[in-house]
Structure formats: structure tokens, C-alpha cells
Amino acid sequence: MTVLPKDIPGDSLKVTVGTANGKPGDTVTVPVTFADVAKMKNVGTCNFYLGYDASLLEVVSVDAGPIVKNAAVNFSSSASNGTISFLFLDNTITDELITADGVFANIKFKLKSVTAKTTTPVTFKDGGAFGDGTMSKIASVTKTNGSVTIDP
């Protein structure tokens, strides 16, 4: 049996954390987006972790974005102690894959008090994996961190 590389060099799934701005007490939304989904033969499963400074940001909610089908079954998240974990699994293993680019999740943060303008990162942590529509590992994932700026 011969195994051929399935990824064209330079191609990767792009996962990007967005940015937001606000004043202390505001609730802002930071999107997590996927790009080049079709090039990577869709997404059938993924789990990953984001870190944030809990002294500056309070997670209000984490909701599935419009590219997630049947989110009540296929999407899960949790947030505590400065870490947000995400889990997606197409429970049907074929019919509810992520097949389009767009917003995977929206994180709502309540901004805490600061004395001066502060930009705090929302960054990928170690761990996690992504699988394509056949549940094979997506070897190349380009992750881009985001941030939230609090301006009193």
C-alpha cells in the first residue's frame, strides 16, 4: 500500500482569532474563523484551546458560528481559569461536516476595569488537533492569535 501526501505544500487550514475593542463593562464579541476549508477536504472534527487573561476578560458565552451545522449536538465549549476549550465533531461522520469558510465560534467577553488603554492577547495554547471530512488528521493548520483592547 502506498500512502501519498494529501496536502499540497503551502496549503493549510487557517484558524484565526479576531479582535475587538471596548470600554470597561462593555461586552464584545471576538470571532474565531476558519478559511481554506474546502482545500483541506472539509473539517469533520477539531479540538483546540485559547488562552486569555482572566483578570482583564470575563467569558460571558461561547457560541457556535454559522458554519457549524447542528451545533447543539456537534459543538461544545467550556471556559475557566483563562482557557477556553473548543470541540467539534460531526456526529453523523459525513452529513454535518464544516464545508465552508466563515465564523466557527463567537466568544463574548465582558471587559474588566483598567486604568490605561490595554491590549490583551487571545492566543492559541498547545494541544488539540483538526481532522478532515474523512477524519484524517489535517497536518497543516495555520493559527493566528487575536486580541481585545480595553480603553477606559
Rank of each mutant, 00 (worst) to 15 (best):
L4T: 12
L4M: 11
L4V: 13
L4F: 13
L4N: 14
P5L: 07
P5H: 08
P5C: 06
P5M: 06
K6L: 13
K6E: 09
K6W: 08
D7F: 14
I8D: 10
I8P: 08
G10Q: 10
G10C: 12
G10N: 11
D11I: 12
L13H: 10
K14N: 09
K14V: 09
V15A: 12
V15G: 09
T16P: 12
V17G: 12
V17E: 08
G18N: 10
T19S: 10
A20N: 13
A20L: 13
N21V: 13
G22S: 13
K23A: 12
K23V: 11
P24T: 11
P24Q: 12
P24D: 08
P24I: 13
P24K: 12
G25W: 09
G25P: 06
G25A: 10
D26G: 11
T27A: 11
T27D: 09
T27G: 08
V28Y: 05
V28Q: 08
T29D: 14
T29H: 10
T29K: 09
T29S: 11
P31R: 09
P31G: 11
P31C: 11
V32D: 02
V32P: 01
V32R: 02
V32I: 13
V32E: 06
F34C: 12
A35N: 10
D36R: 13
V37W: 03
V37K: 07
A38N: 09
A38F: 07
A38P: 10
M40K: 07
M40D: 08
M40H: 07
K41S: 09
N42D: 14
N42I: 10
N42K: 11
V43H: 05
G44V: 12
G44E: 04
T45S: 03
T45N: 00
T45C: 07
T45L: 09
C46E: 01
C46I: 01
N47L: 01
N47P: 00
N47T: 01
N47V: 01
F48T: 07
F48P: 01
Y49L: 00
L50M: 09
L50A: 08
G51F: 08
G51E: 09
Y52K: 03
Y52S: 14
Y52A: 08
Y52E: 03
D53K: 10
D53G: 10
A54G: 13
S55Y: 12
S55A: 08
L56I: 09
L56H: 13
L57W: 12
L57D: 07
L57N: 11
L57S: 10
E58A: 10
E58P: 03
E58V: 13
E58S: 10
E58C: 10
E58K: 10
V59P: 09
V59K: 08
V60P: 06
V60A: 10
S61C: 07
S61P: 07
S61L: 11
S61H: 12
V62F: 06
V62T: 12
D63M: 13
D63Y: 07
D63A: 12
D63C: 09
A64S: 11
A64P: 10
A64Y: 14
G65D: 10
G65W: 09
G65A: 09
P66A: 12
P66S: 12
I67S: 11
V68P: 10
V68C: 10
K69A: 11
K69D: 13
K69H: 12
K69L: 08
N70A: 08
A72S: 13
V73K: 05
V73E: 14
V73C: 12
N74R: 00
N74K: 04
F75D: 01
F75H: 10
S76Q: 04
A79E: 15
A79P: 05
A79K: 15
S80P: 05
S80F: 12
N81P: 15
N81Y: 15
N81M: 15
T83S: 14
S85Q: 00
S85R: 01
S85A: 14
F86V: 04
F88S: 03
F88Y: 04
F88T: 00
F88C: 06
F88E: 01
F88V: 01
L89Q: 00
D90V: 05
N91C: 15
N91F: 15
T92A: 03
T92V: 03
T92F: 00
T92L: 02
I93Y: 01
T94M: 01
T94I: 13
D95P: 02
D95A: 06
D95W: 01
E96A: 07
E96G: 03
L97Q: 04
L97I: 06
I98C: 08
I98N: 04
I98W: 01
I98P: 01
A100R: 07
A100D: 07
D101K: 06
D101I: 03
D101C: 06
G102A: 03
V103N: 00
F104L: 03
F104Q: 04
F104N: 01
A105W: 02
N106A: 06
N106T: 06
F109P: 00
F109V: 05
F109T: 02
K110Y: 02
K110V: 05
K110P: 01
L111K: 04
L111F: 05
K112C: 00
K112A: 03
K112E: 04
T115C: 03
A116G: 06
T118P: 08
T118D: 06
T118C: 06
T119S: 09
T119C: 13
T119N: 04
T120D: 06
T120H: 06
T120L: 04
P121R: 12
P121V: 05
P121L: 07
P121C: 04
V122M: 07
V122G: 05
T123K: 14
T123Q: 06
T123V: 07
F124C: 03
F124Q: 02
K125D: 02
K125G: 01
K125E: 04
K125S: 02
D126R: 15
G127H: 04
G128Q: 02
G128F: 02
G128L: 02
A129R: 01
A129W: 02
F130S: 02
F130M: 04
F130R: 02
G131H: 01
G131I: 00
D132E: 04
D132T: 15
D132P: 03
D132H: 02
G133W: 06
G133Y: 04
T134K: 11
M135P: 00
M135D: 00
S136L: 04
S136W: 15
S136V: 01
K137I: 03
I138G: 03
I138C: 09
I138T: 05
I138K: 01
A139G: 07
A139L: 07
A139W: 15
A139S: 05
S140H: 08
V141A: 03
V141Y: 01
T142V: 06
T142K: 09
T144P: 06
G146N: 06
G146I: 04
G146E: 01
G146S: 04
G146T: 07
S147M: 06
V148Q: 04
V148G: 09
V148C: 08
V148R: 00
T149R: 14
T149I: 14
I150G: 15
I150P: 15
I150M: 13
I150Q: 15
I150V: 14
D151R: 15
D151I: 15
D151S: 15
D151T: 15
P152R: 15
P152S: 10
